[in-house]
Design a binder for these strands. Structure first.
Lengths: 243, 243
DNA sequence: AATCAATGGACCATTTATGGACCATATGAC
DNA sequence: GTCATATGGTCCATAAATGGTCCATTGATT
């Protein structure tokens, strides 16, 4: 009784000069709703609009909307309760309690010791030629620091970031980005010049070079061992400063 | 900021009369679509417009579009499914905030293998009596699942979360929360019941108990070893399902 | 002339969407 | 309590959408 929901190809072609954008299907509806949930349009425990309203909003049949909602429920973003509605189950990580503020350098290095050696193993397994090229570039840049602690530090971050990229594992990359972010912003790095003496930098660079060679040689055991030594030494250097 | 795409009607009108300007062949169509995929116009897992729409948009025959799509499928940028559509397979490294969507179960378990064994080492070093009590509670809850895959899965998540808390390392805890979030929401857990047979659950529970005992005994080597075996087995179980 | 890519059309098989109906539960008004 | 309303859950038959395939034709290049 209301507006006819343009079904035919003719009406589409006439009304929409640029139709290429989005056809209505359950996948796109799910995608759009997921985005809104994650963006916080619907917060934790909020109720989504009724299926019949959503159907009207998206110009789709109720069954299509239900398919989309089912998908979101499978991925644990929603809970649906008969007679009540669909409720957001996703806890927005608004608790960005500035993790960098809470983390000491020692805790940071402990996490890196836990993560990076096995990250190197994954890197050996999955790195491709392009990754190795980028790693080589980063290696040269960090070796060109001329003993400057600040330059070395930035280059070192980039080099280890390259290692994370070599894993070709999106989750690992995502995690390491945050580790690196914490490392970059941790406020304790005032002592950097105390630790990063020219001799220490030289030692670190030698280990970097060894690590790169091990990855190129696809030697996973060597790579994990080198990185483990590398970080253990960094940990010792950190502890050696003030006891 | 990034869309200088549209040719204006004027420029088109001026340039078009020249013969060789805008040839429509499968190569150029493939090229244009590839660029749009890489630019993120169509994100990971999005459905491309139907072949018939693309044909209309490019002013080409459907067969030509199909040739282009076939090329993109060969280069692993697309997957096409009969009756459903063509879906982007390329994981844009562009900012994708929903990391759970991008992570496969195998990639997840690889990350866990990298992180958790050494996390157990930190747990042994830093766990206090209260942590151990919570861990014991979680252990009992997960052992009471009576072979129910869903209940076990939730309990298992909680148990491993306890392990993360035992490290008393805020950064590690923060990281593991996100790993757990991905694990919880990863949409591939349809096969859970295939993997989590009662026998498998029993084996996992035995390993949980061993791990708990190792931590109470402050045996770091045993704890890392057990967790390593635990996850390696989970990885093998995952791989053993569909080949 | 031969070749090759593109065209346009048709048909197929599978998957999805549609529109309607009816049911079960929850909520609030009375 | 009772009732009306709103909401999700389910089922069904039909229609539409979508990729897969084949084929005769066309146009350009060789």
């Amino acid at each position: 009784m209301n507006r006819p929901r343009l079904h035919t190809a003719e009406s589409l072609a006439e009304v929409e000069p640029r139709p290429a954008a989005r056809s209505v299907n359950s996948a796109t509806i799910a995608s759009e709703l997921r985005r809104e949930i994650i963006d916080g349009v619907y917060a934790y425990r909020d109720r989504l609009p009724p299926e019949r309203l959503l159907a009207e909003r998206f110009g789709a049949a109720r069954g299509t909307v239900r398919a989309a909602l089912a998908r979101l429920e499978e991925t644990k973003l929603l809970t649906r309760e008969p007679g009540r509605g669909a409720f957001v189950r996703y806890r927005g990580h608004a608790e960005q309690d500035d993790i960098a503020e809470l983390t000491s350098p020692l805790e940071l290095i402990d996490v890196r010791i836990a993560v990076e050696p096995d990250m190197a193993r994954l890197a050996v397994r999955h790195a491709n030629a392009q990754d190795l090229r980028r790693m080589s570039d980063a290696l040269e840049r960090v070796e060109d620091c001329n003993g400057d602690a600040e330059v070395f530090s930035r280059g070192d971050e980039a080099f280890h970031m390259c290692l994370a990229e070599c894993t070709r594992n999106p989750l690992m990359l995502w995690l390491y980005r945050h580790i690196n972010e914490v490392r970059h912003r941790t406020q304790w790095n005032i002592r950097k010049d105390k630790i990063l003496t020219p001799q220490a930098i030289e030692g670190y660079n030698r280990q970097h070079r060894d690590l790169y060679n091990a990855i190129v040689a696809r030697d996973a055991e060597a790579a994990t061992q080198i990185l483990n030594d590398h970080l253990k030494q960094a940990r010792a250097d950190l502890l050696g400063v003030h006891p």
